[in-house]
Design a protein around this nucleic acid. Structure first.
Lengths: 151, 151
DNA sequence: CTAAAAAAAGATTTTTTAGTCTTTAAATAA
DNA sequence: TTATTTAAAGACTAAAAAATCTTTTTTTAG
């Protein structure tokens, strides 16, 4: 459903939410290793997110990417809008241009509630809230997490 | 989630379920018009479905594609397996290689039940059953359906 | 038996997505 | 102030998906 780019971006922003703040920045190299994503490709994505003010960065030694306090108030939905756009959430599962509640496709009423639910989760929950939930319930977003689990 | 190819194929097979049988075949041209799909591309797909025995066809004048009695006993899942493969239903929404019930990604428990439900619908319901449901509840799969609605 | 109608086969092109490489700019530590 | 470290920018390449075009084969109506 989501492009690779968007999957990487979401995982990266959650990762940054967990690992970083104004005083703890991380470079692309480390991020891409932990997330198992292609380094230069992820760099591009982080640049995009930085340009749209979803992620913060500083150059030079000890620089890197991080989420500011403010950044953590954004939503996963913001990331999706930036990287993939919203079309995948608007469009019919079977590709019908005119699939609606009134003229539904054969799977409309199976797919629709799910999209709604997922959209709500992405739109109404902040990165910060996701991070808290991830930490409290031990969710996984990177290889690093498996190392943590082992300890 | 599904490729264009697969969306076209599913709609085509349901269309054939509704419109055709051994004595009423339809050519690609008409099918692609009704479904609003690129004609030569759909032709390819129908050939693939024919080769894997999900769709029947005969060449020559008055030939075309159709679903035999037997064909209608197959499932939408069979179509997906033929065209896209199953990977999209196995893999994590955020692209994590190791996302499971035990080590879930942050959206695993939102996405998982949906995939389950959708998979069941695709796997356990025959084309025939889909067709009946479509006819009884007035679901939409093609432009043609809108013409029908108007009458 | 032949012409026309249709699918089958396969080569080709286009577009999109994914990913890489190279150069430039900024920041900082020494 | 200079070397080093890091992101930013942009050009480039590769692979996959989508779509098209051309030729061949089969069928059947006349």
């Amino acid at each position: 459903m989501l492009s690779n780019a968007c999957q990487y971006a979401i995982r990266a922003i959650l990762y940054l939410g967990i690992q970083t703040d104004e005083n703890n920045k991380i470079g692309v190299k480390q991020i891409s290793e932990d997330l198992e994503t292609p380094q230069p490709f992820l760099a591009k994505l982080l640049q995009q997110l930085t340009k749209t003010n979803l992620v913060s960065s500083t150059k030079g030694p000890n620089g890197g990417f991080y989420l500011s306090e403010k950044d953590t108030k954004n939503s996963v939905w913001d990331v999706i809008k930036t990287i993939d756009g919203t079309s995948k959430f608007d469009s019919c599962f079977l590709g019908l241009s005119k699939c609606t509640d009134e003229t539904p496709c054969p799977v409309h009423f199976i797919v629709s509630p799910f999209k709604e639910k997922l959209l709500n989760s992405f739109r109404d929950k902040t990165i910060e809230q996701y991070v808290i939930e991830i930490q409290q319930t031990g969710k996984i977003i990177s290889l690093k997490d498996f190392d943590i689990l082992k300890n």
